[in-house]
Write a protein that binds this DNA or RNA. Structure first.
Lengths: 132, 132
DNA sequence: TTTGACCTTCCCATGATGGGAAGGTTTAGA
DNA sequence: TCTAAACCTTCCCATCATGGGAAGGTCAAA
């Protein structure tokens, strides 16, 4: 099938499929006589896998490794778990950071009248708070 | 003072200061005869403000507006509060999304032995889960 | 045969920086 | 006074994952 068909079946854009080939997540596609890329069910399967991993927030570098491990039936599950765990740790840190920021903003926002008056604790606190 | 001094006092890099000028967060700096940018205390003050807003996760577009409002003593606090609230809503959505992803990953990770065996629920679930 | 819907490669843009090159300026010390 | 270090300048490239679009070739149906 053509790139457009494969992309549609995987639920992503053809642009992305070419990109995934370029960065090595997908191996180079076979070509028709006229130069069109040719895909089969296995490729669609991989593309779906990539898309789902992406929805779990994995970076393309991580996904590249995951696809490699996924193709290899003899890999140790340890490797996969390590990638997932590392990713999870990063996520958890990010969540804590965002929660801290959100909490600060809620505090500031609550104390701002938010009307026609110019007085604004939000600006004042951004202005005078310590860095970080 | 020179750009290096101003940057140091604000706790950021000189690169960033030039960048902030380029995107209009900072107005164009005066120049010495030899073409060096010249800064004063007010500029350092603004740079610190920008850096703090950045630490609160505001985008440069939002910061640009905040700096504008901050300079204007007659602005309505409503405007500032709206920017902060909008930002907060975005943050909260992001947090929920990351928490959902983290929860899925924890679940997957817990069920993977993570040893020499090849069986790996993580890959299996990424493979067969529905999209999104 | 024409037309429209594909496909190809290539370049540019995003956001907020950092890196580094090539070249000019200033400052401090020998 | 000369020189070397430590600044400064602009300009271009890279990040990351993706979209937009141009210019041009291919294919399938009418």
């Amino acid at each position: 099938m053509t790139i457009g068909e494969a992309a549609k079946r995987a639920g992503i854009s053809a642009k992305r499929v070419r990109h995934y080939e370029e960065i090595g997540v997908l191996s180079k596609a076979a070509r028709s006589e006229s130069g069109y890329r040719i895909y089969d069910e296995t490729d669609v399967h991989i593309l779906r896998f990539v898309n789902r991993a992406r929805n779990l927030g994995f970076s393309m570098a991580e996904i590249k490794r995951l696809v490699g491990l996924w193709k290899n039936r003899r890999r140790a599950s340890r490797e996969v778990k390590k990638i997932a765990k590392d990713h999870l740790v990063g996520l958890e840190q990010k969540i804590i950071e965002l929660q801290s920021i959100a909490s600060t903003l809620r505090h500031l926002s609550d104390r701002c009248s938010g009307d026609d008056r110019p007085d604004c604790p939000i600006l004042q606190e951004i202005e005078f708070s310590s860095n970080k």
